[in-house]
Amino acid sequence: MTSKNRAKEERSSLGWFLAGARGIVSLPAIILMLSFVGFCALTVQAGIPPEQVVFMVGAVWALPAKVILVSSILSGASLATAFLAVTLSSVRLMPMVAALVPELRTPKTPTWLLLVLSHFIAITAWVFAMERVQDVPRHHRVTYFAGFGITLVATNMMLVGIVYHVVAEFPPIIAGCLFFLTPVYFLASIWHSARHPVVYLALATGLVSGPLFYWIAPEFDILLAGVVGGTLAWLAERLWRGQRRAGA
């Protein structure tokens, strides 16, 4: 064992929690914070009070789900419609969590702890954890992830509370760029973190079917775009996979 590895083994739980917390200065965390400033501008324009925005950041956490929740509120959707739109957009959290849990847990990790910590999983925390957790001794991984996840959520809750009253007075170019950061960041991070060919296809069909269904049925556009676009992408990828297998 090298001295570096021994130092890692000897680090305390608090040490690992703080090591995770230091992830707040990483590139993904900084991009996410800028996106949250942009999201804050969206909620100001939607007329949602600051206390509710802070609550939303802590309670929902996943940025795409929050953007859909705000759009639902803006369009005057009912509770059932909003729930359906948000929950369908968040299905992606299940495979993400399911893929991360085997990396984090030991046979002794209690299930309740994983259920609590799963709340801190969204795209950024997931990408960060999948990349970095490999270098953390297994019995410290849950602590390390808790340090990162809790710090990231708490920081963004404070950030949103602080910038809420400032974003409205930003120069137009800054406000425009911050708003634009969210879609551009999602595009780049979904492509970058895709592990399956169907994700690339679904990204393309979703980009096309979103505006298409907005034009055909604006109340249910995102739901329809997801189900129809996603199913088409899945069928196309299956067909392609089958043909490739038959050709081989």
Binding site: P95, H196, L203, L207, G230, E237
Partner: peptide, 30 residues
């Protein structure tokens, strides 16, 4: 599993639809 593959496709397309709407129909300055 194939079911998970479909779920993954639908989920990605949903987020992509949100991205497209943010780019094509932005609010505020844009």
């Amino acid at each position: 599993s194939e079911a998970l593959n479909w779920v993954r496709a639908v989920a990605t397309a949903l987020v992509a639809a949100v991205i497209a709407k943010l780019i094509l129909y932005p609010t505020g300055v844009l």
